[in-house]
Amino acid sequence: MWHSFCDWYLELSKTIFYSENNQNIEETRNVASYVFAQILVILHPFIPFLTEEIWLKNKLDKDGEDFLMLKNWSDATATKDKDYDEVNEIIEFVSAIRSFKNEIEISPGSFVNILIDKINPNTKEFIERNLNTLKKIGRINEFLNEDIKKPSANLIIKGEIFKIYFDEDIELSKIKTTLLNKKSKIEKEMERINTKLNNKSFIERAPNDIVEQEKSNFINLEKDVNKLNYTLESL
């Protein structure tokens, strides 16, 4: 709940609030209030003081009759619809950009430009629909359709290639070194697993699910290395 509501929902809400679209603002206000109120209700048995304080402060108490303490848990079940999926996609996209920044060790606060000339039309539409949100939360200056002469690296998100352009101050060589180090670490780990998997006595003695686990670990690491390679090549 912490993660979903506070981090994502509020961030997403902020973009709407700061936008000029009044209708969206009003709707967001209502939804945010409703969701928040429900959250207070659910949290109340755990953290009664804070939740009651907020409830009363927000004058959710009418005429001293309604306390959070006696409020009823809502039976409303959340319905999953396409909007729900859309939000998930936004979260996935932004998360990918963020972890990429983290991996090449550049500041999460730094802005980037992204080339989207090679992506498929559906994804382009998705980006257009959520342009403001993605730009604000993903810290993206612009989505570009033409290449520009700036230091960049390639990133694969959900099978599609995005070219990420960094700010002037980023030293490409430093990034390359960081990535190479990461790659060699992963390759070492893959080596270790490989040795294990080639060891007859391990295969024979270890329980099946452990062996399967190691195999899948190896495959995941392989995927990571491929991604890194791709990015490295582009630098």
Partner: peptide, 26 residues
């Protein structure tokens, strides 16, 4: 710190004029 987050969330909603009375009927 989690409590602070909730408090801040509330502040954010208030700053943006979220009207909680309206949602009581929801």
């Amino acid at each position: 710190n989690f409590l602070n987050k909730i408090w801040n969330a509330n502040n954010l909603l208030i700053q943006n004029d979220c009207k909680f009375e309206n949602i009581k009927k929801a």
